[in-house]
């Protein structure tokens, strides 16, 4: 059994790793001028977190991470996107992993995470604009989410096969 202290240390470690990954990602230029299209490197942290410690732990880490990163690097306006995306994608990845982990590998979990993260972003944008027209942008973001999600999912799979501490 894991002690309370070890759990606390691991949560903080995961938040720190996620923040560093997100700040590295923020320094990249926007990929091919598609707003909202990004790599989502901290999705790797979320996937590993869900598979190692379960959904609730991952939800705490993801929401704390997005609040802290938005306060450090972004602004209050980017907080809503980041937080809603983190919460929705973590919940759906947890559910997906519970239901279908025997047939699908971590790559699919990454795809689900990427696509739902982008859906949440469009949702927040349509609430901000009070207009439904922006949903026409979702298909573009879904392609980006599927590609970047499979990249992060495969990376998470590679890392989790190498990781020894449990």
């Amino acid at each position: 059994m894991r002690s309370k202290t070890k759990e606390l240390v691991l949560i903080s470690l995961f938040i720190a790793i996620g923040m560093v990954l997100q700040s590295i990602e923020n320094s990249f230029p926007i990929i091919s001028g598609i707003p909202g299209g990004k790599l989502g490197l901290c999705n790797i942290v979320s996937i590993l977190n869900i598979s190692m410690f379960g959904g609730i732990n991952a939800l705490i880490v993801a929401s704390l991470r997005s609040v802290l990163t938005s306060l450090l690097f972004g602004g209050v306006s980017s907080l809503m996107y980041s937080l809603c995306g983190a919460i929705l994608s973590t919940i759906s990845m947890t559910v997906f992993m519970k239901l279908a982990s025997d047939k699908f590998s971590l790559m699919s979990v990454g795809i689900i995470g990427g696509v739902t993260h982008n859906t949440a972003q469009v949702m927040v944008a349509s609430v901000t604009l009070s207009s439904g027209y922006i949903w026409s942008y979702l298909p573009v973001l879904m392609i980006i989410g599927a590609i970047s999600g499979s990249v992060t999912g495969i990376s998470a799979g590679l890392i989790s096969s190498k990781m020894k501490f449990k």
Binding site: F104, M107, V115, S136, L138, P139, M142, I143, A146, S150
Partner: peptide, 25 residues
């Protein structure tokens, strides 16, 4: 390991979004 289902899901999402984009266009 990438399974067959992974590939199917990936292709499915890409095809769905391309269909939606064509529909919009």
């Amino acid at each position: 390991m990438i399974t067959l289902h992974d590939k199917l899901l990936f292709t499915g999402v890409i095809l769905l979004s391309i269909t939606l984009m064509l529909f919009l266009n």
